[in-house]
Amino acid sequence: MIAFLGQGRMGVPMARRLERAGHKVTTWRRGTGVTAASAVEGAGLVITMLRDPAAVREVLAAALPGLRPGATVVEMSTIGPEEVRGLRSLLPPEVRLVDAPVLGSVGPAAEGALTVLAGGDVSGCREVLEVLGTVRECGPLGAGAAMKLAVMSALVPAQVLVAETLAYGTAHGVDRAALLEVLAGTPLGPVAERLREPARETRYALGLAAKDLDLAAWPGATLATAAHRRLREAEAAGLGERDLTAVAGHVEGGRDPVAGERRAVPLNPATVPATNGMYSHAVRVGDMLYVSGQAAFDERGRLVGEGSMTEQAEHVFRCLGEILADQGAGFGDIAFLRTYLTDMDDRVEYGQVRRKYITGTPPASTTVEVSKLFMPGLLLEVDAIVALPS
């Protein structure tokens, strides 16, 4: 059995690919009420595909009680070689570890056309990895992670460079289409083609690209450092969840190239259960974030923690935390918090959970009792207004 930890943009199509190949796959994501330890019980192979090093450490630490001796953990996130070595120290000696980050986006993940950059002994998991794409053995443990960052430290700055080239052309009256045609005949042609039109579907999030360059930072990386600064500026402008190609419009005109001049930028982090399509989890306007009411339901729309205020409140605050972290904020940045309870007698139990997450001086807040919420069984809903860090 394979336990696949992480069901974001890349994790979902990868897990489905494995299932269609005939493997028994158990999937896990945050906020479902299922522990990582229970998700990995009995699994001979555990795959992690998570956002960043902190998430990988947290999830694997939580999974430790369920890992069986002799299991293999395949870490496929982009976290860097130092973090991989840290994971080796975290895991028991009887649990094998392979690092296998990938090159490719959502489309190749669904088609099994990724390039898997493997570090360590892949003899026990190569057949599974080949379902996802072409496996390239890079060397000992950590070599795959190092190869991934080395590649991204070239590819990402190249896209920022072409974005700046297009901005230069615009500022000097150069026809954009003509410039792209000329670039098409140079080694930068494939990169220029990618930036011809911003992708409306996020394949490789701009915020993740910024994270990758942050991991790849070293004193001699002058071009990558400048590109990283550009991406962080675009992320602060609300483009973190857009595809990396959005950097072209940001550099050229300081705007969201998909939404045009729209100042309200909807945000739906992949780490939070999806909405029903009638609202966004949050909307960013400048340095303010308006968070929709968060309630205790999972990615399939099922109630979490039926009858338990503590379980539902924990789920709600975890979702709030994911949304805040997506924009580089924390609970201390909340300016206003509003809570709807179906029974005011539950406020003490709710308050105990709230104080775990909101410490120090509390934000402005309102708590009201309502007769019912939008889903039967919900005991509370919480929305917020957040002042984002500059």
Rank of each mutant, 00 (worst) to 15 (best):
A167L: 10
V84F: 01
E137K: 05
A145K: 01
G189Q: 10
C125N: 13
G144C: 04
R96F: 04
A154N: 12
V191C: 04
Y168I: 15
V106Q: 09
S89K: 11
E181W: 04
R96Q: 12
V116C: 04
V122W: 02
Y168C: 13
T186E: 06
A113E: 14
L141T: 11
A154G: 14
L188F: 08
L90W: 06
P92D: 13
K148R: 04
A145W: 00
G142K: 01
E197H: 08
G133D: 04
A143D: 03
I79Y: 08
G185N: 10
V151R: 14
L195I: 07
E127K: 15
P92E: 13
L129I: 12
A192D: 03
T115N: 13
Q159H: 12
A178P: 14
A163M: 05
P108I: 09
R136H: 14
S123Y: 10
V131K: 15
T134Q: 15
G86T: 06
A184W: 07
G80M: 03
E127F: 13
L149D: 01
G120R: 04
P198E: 01
E82V: 08
A145I: 00
G169L: 06
T115W: 07
A192F: 09
A145G: 02
L149R: 01
R96I: 02
E82D: 13
L155N: 12
A113V: 10
V98T: 10
A145H: 00
A158K: 11
L114I: 09
T134S: 14
A192R: 06
E181I: 07
L188V: 10
R96K: 14
L149E: 01
P187E: 03
A158Y: 06
A143C: 05
E82W: 08
V98Y: 00
V122P: 04
P108N: 08
G189C: 06
A171D: 14
R126W: 10
R126S: 14
M147L: 13
L180I: 06
V84Y: 00
L161M: 11
G144L: 01
R194F: 02
G185F: 03
V151A: 15
L132S: 05
M152V: 12
A163L: 07
G86Y: 02
M152Q: 12
P157V: 01
L155R: 10
L188A: 10
P157D: 00
M147F: 07
D175G: 11
A146I: 05
L132M: 13
A192V: 07
A113T: 12
A192N: 04
S153Q: 15
L180C: 05
R176K: 12
A143T: 09
A154H: 14
E164P: 04
D99N: 00
V182K: 06
L103K: 08
M147I: 09
H172G: 12
E127I: 05
V84W: 00
G104E: 06
P190H: 08
A184D: 08
L97V: 10
V191H: 03
A143Q: 03
D175S: 11
G173N: 13
P101K: 05
A100R: 00
A110C: 13
G142E: 02
R126C: 10
G169I: 07
L149C: 02
G173Y: 15
L149P: 02
L141R: 05
D121A: 08
L161Y: 08
T78G: 06
I79Q: 09
R176W: 06
G119N: 02
L149I: 03
G139N: 11
G104T: 11
V102P: 01
L87R: 02
L117K: 04
V95I: 11
A163W: 03
V151W: 08
K148Q: 02
R88M: 05
